[in-house]
Each structure stands twice: as structure tokens, then as C-alpha cells.
């Protein structure tokens, strides 16, 4: 009796696992993903324009700050999402996810660009002296700008042609920069908040889990590690 039950359980769990593994990429997923990732940006732009020009309060009483932070948080979410692809592939077997990582990465860059535009144009209002002081004297701005700058080579080398030109190994090594960029992003976030570290620490925890997963894999299988990361 006991054996019989456990067999069923095993069979069932196996079939659930198989069913997950057998899940293929839904048709049009790539397009859907792109459309979905445009929505927050579209809302941010429309909301900010309306708040600034028409005096609405979609982003509350201080729309510039709120909108700026909104875009920053989406940047972090997308960076974390790019780092989730590999663990997710390994757990679910959905290798088709891999090709969407580029979409996530490029959108992360898009959001950080909007974040920077909101900061420089709407918040600091192109006060050059202030931008310079921010960059040189305020470490959290410096870290944020560094993270943004480090994303540029990744964007430039994101095309198939560039992957071929660099060669898989070198390209992989270069794109490891995203680990540093994301850490810088989370530090930038935690230094920017006034007092309540709940959200930055949540990001830090998620990063710790993602990086921990990789470390444990690399230490077990040093040969494969780098190529799947």
C-alpha cells in the first residue's frame, strides 16, 4: 500500500515536471514581450507629460521625482530579469527563454536612459554646474552613471554580427559586466533612498540568491559554468 502511494506521487511529480519541461515557446511571445515592456515606459512618459503640462497628479504631487524613481525601479527589475533567465532555463528546461534575454537587456538600457533623461532634463533641468557636482561629489550619482556607462558596450555588442565578430567566449566575458552593473544599480538605489531600505534590500536579497545559484554551479562544474551564464 505504502509503496503504491509513493509510486503514484512519484509518477505524478514526474509528469508535472515533464509537462513543465515540455512547455514550448508560445507563438508571438517575443512580440508580446516587447509590447509588454513598452507599457511602463509609455505610462511614464504620458503620465509625466500630463502632470507637468496639465497639472494632473498621475505621479502624485511631485511627478518629476516620482517618475524618475519609477523609471529607475523598472531598470533594476529588467536587469534582475536578465539575470533570472539562466537559472530559470535550468530549472524549467525552457531553453527558448535564452533568446529573449537580449530584449530584456536592451529594455533595461532603454529604461535607464529614460531614467537619466528624467534626472538631467526634468529634475536637474540641465544645470551643468549641478550635474558636475552631482557626478563628482555625490557617490550615488557617480555609481549610477558608472553603471549606465558600463551598459553601453553591452548594447553596442548586442547584435548577432557583433557576437560573431567578438567570438562567443570573449562576448560572454564582456557581458559578465551586467553582474557588476546590477550590483552598482542596487547600491545606487540604496544610497539614494532617505531612510527606508526595505526595497533596496529586497533587490539585494534577490541578487544574492541569483549570484549564489551561479556560484554554487560554477564551483561544481567549472567547465560549463561560464558558457551558460
Amino acid at each position: 500500500m505504502g509503496t503504491w502511494t509513493s509510486e503514484i506521487v512519484q509518477q505524478e511529480s514526474k509528469s508535472v515536471r515533464d509537462r513543465i519541461r515540455a512547455f514550448r515557446e508560445p507563438r508571438g511571445f517575443g512580440v508580446l514581450l516587447i509590447v509588454a515592456l513598452c507599457i511602463p515606459a509609455a505610462l511614464a512618459i504620458a503620465g509625466l507629460l500630463s502632470d507637468i503640462l496639465a497639472g494632473t497628479r498621475y505621479f502624485g504631487s511631485n511627478p518629476v521625482k516620482e517618475g524618475e524613481h519609477f523609471l529607475g525601479r523598472w531598470t533594476l527589475r529588467l536587469l534582475v530579469a536578465t539575470l533570472t533567465i539562466t537559472p530559470l532555463r535550468h530549472i524549467t528546461g525552457w531553453n527558448w527563454l535564452a533568446k529573449h534575454r537580449r530584449t530584456l537587456g536592451l529594455f533595461a538600457f532603454g529604461y535607464v536612459t529614460l531614467h537619466w533623461i528624467a534626472y538631467a532634463f526634468l529634475d536637474v533641468q540641465l544645470d551643468w554646474g549641478e550635474l558636475k557636482t552631482d557626478l563628482l561629489k555625490r557617490p550615488y550619482i557617480f555609481l549610477g552613471m558608472t553603471a549606465l556607462a558600463l551598459l553601453v558596450p553591452l548594447v553596442v555588442t548586442s547584435t548577432k554580427k557583433m557576437i560573431r565578430r567578438l567570438g562567443g567566449k570573449r562576448w560572454n566575458r564582456l557581458h559578465k559586466l551586467v553582474y557588476i552593473v546590477t550590483i552598482l544599480g542596487v547600491i545606487h538605489y540604496s544610497m539614494a533612498v532617505k531612510q527606508d531600505l526595505t526595497y533596496p534590500l529586497t533587490y539585494a536579497l534577490v541578487l544574492a540568491i541569483l549570484y549564489g545559484w551561479r556560484l554554487s554551479r560554477w564551483s561544481r562544474k567549472p567547465a560549463i559554468g561560464p558558457s551558460v551564464a
Binding site: I52, G55, S61, N62, V64, K65, L122, Q125, D127, E130, T133, D134, R138, Y140, M191, A192
Partner: peptide, 17 residues
């Protein structure tokens, strides 16, 4: 303030500082 300038301010409801 160590993390931002106090030379300007944003009046709630206004865009230009």
C-alpha cells in the same frame, strides 16, 4: 545636503525650480 544641492527647490505644483 551631502547628497543633493540645497540651492534650489521644487515648489510642489511647479515644474521649473
Amino acid at each position: 545636503h551631502p547628497r543633493w544641492s540645497q540651492a534650489t527647490e521644487r515648489r510642489i505644483g511647479e515644474f521649473l525650480k
